[in-house]
């Protein structure tokens, strides 16, 4: 847990649902974390977790075939030193019970994104997506 008191802050941005947007998601996160004065190592981890969650939307919720105008929204908020990252998308509804990473000792390509997210964040929660959204993922981390 950080000894720095981070200023309360909230910011959100919409991105096209495609793999080219992942870089933009990372840039957005880094800019927000700069404003929050989050230390470098933790910032790298958080950016990875957020980018993995965004990648899951592109790859799994939309199976790499979202319409060219389809959007996903990433919202980063910090309140009382608790960081919350919310994702909103209109892809295939996610069944949280089916979201699992591969066995880490069973070395093979794939299945690591969810593992990274769980390793880095304190909590991963799928909430009901309110219209017009279908999926609403919330990642939290105490700073």
């Amino acid at each position: 847990m950080s000894e720095i008191a981070h200023q309360d802050h909230i910011e959100k941005k919409a991105f096209l649902v495609n793999s080219s947007s992942l870089k933009d998601v990372r840039v957005f996160c880094r800019e927000v974390f700069e404003k929050l004065h989050i230390q470098e190592d933790l910032k790298d981890e958080l950016v990875l977790a957020i980018a993995e969650a965004a990648q899951n939307i592109v790859k799994h919720a939309f199976k790499n075939s979202a319409s060219p105008t389809e959007l996903m929204v990433v919202q980063i908020s910090c309140e009382n030193n608790k960081l919350q990252i919310a994702f909103y998308d209109r892809g295939t509804p996610v069944d949280p019970k089916k979201v699992k990473h591969r066995e880490i000792d069973n070395v093979k390509p794939g299945g690591l994104g969810t593992f990274f997210i769980q390793e880095i964040m304190d909590a991963v929660e799928f909430k009901d997506g309110k219209k017009p959204w279908i999926n609403h993922l919330v990642l939290t981390k105490q700073l």
Partner: peptide, 16 residues
């Protein structure tokens, strides 16, 4: 300077 799980998969596939 940055690699995600997809990049790690490329390393695993290359190794195998």
């Amino acid at each position: 300077q940055y690699m995600d799980s997809s990049g790690i998969s490329v390393l695993i596939e290359s190794h195998q």
